[in-house]
Amino acid sequence: MPNKKKPSSLSRRQFIKGVSTGVAGTIATTKLARALPIEKLEKAAPPEGHLPLELKVNGKPYQLYVEPQTTLVEVLRNELQLTGTKVSCNHGECGACTVLLDGKAVYSCHILALDAQGKSVTTIEGLLNGEELHPIQKAFIKKDGYQCGFCTPGQIMSTQALLLKNPNPTKEEILDGLSGNLCRCGAYPKIIESVEEAAKVK
């Protein structure tokens, strides 16, 4: 038994966390020229071609310098290390990168970071209450609303946007509210059940 316990002590989550931090770290180094925290530059003049960006992410204010072509998800993942938001199509079609911008669902891969100027962004990390999962996250676990899980953060953020606007959606409204999120595994029936569950318990 003790032999078996040791390998399993590294949970999947910790494993993914370790790997993704490594990946994010590499990207942040290579893309350093694209977005820099202002405090690190000691308020020096911005690097050439960069513009200042101030935004709130999950309630926390940030100031950075970004190149204009930087997308919001590049700032979230590469600079703020908020890697819960996923990039799949990077074309504003699949919904994996869905975040809330001033409470409304948007594709963070398909919006310039500078268009979030002065706005409030909520990512999947922002739904947590400390270490406690959000009721929508719990509902997705309870109803098995995912298979590979890659699209799940986006599905959950679209659910949050839908329930903020419409706390008691009909099935039709759920289908419409989540229509901008694709699931390559085809877990749609369970995703819809998860949203219904989340609407019930919240």
Binding site: L101, A105, H110, S158, G180
Partner: peptide, 9 residues
């Protein structure tokens, strides 16, 4: 038109 996310943008 498009999806909820695109309609918000």
């Amino acid at each position: 038109t498009a999806s909820p996310q695109l309609r918000n943008m």
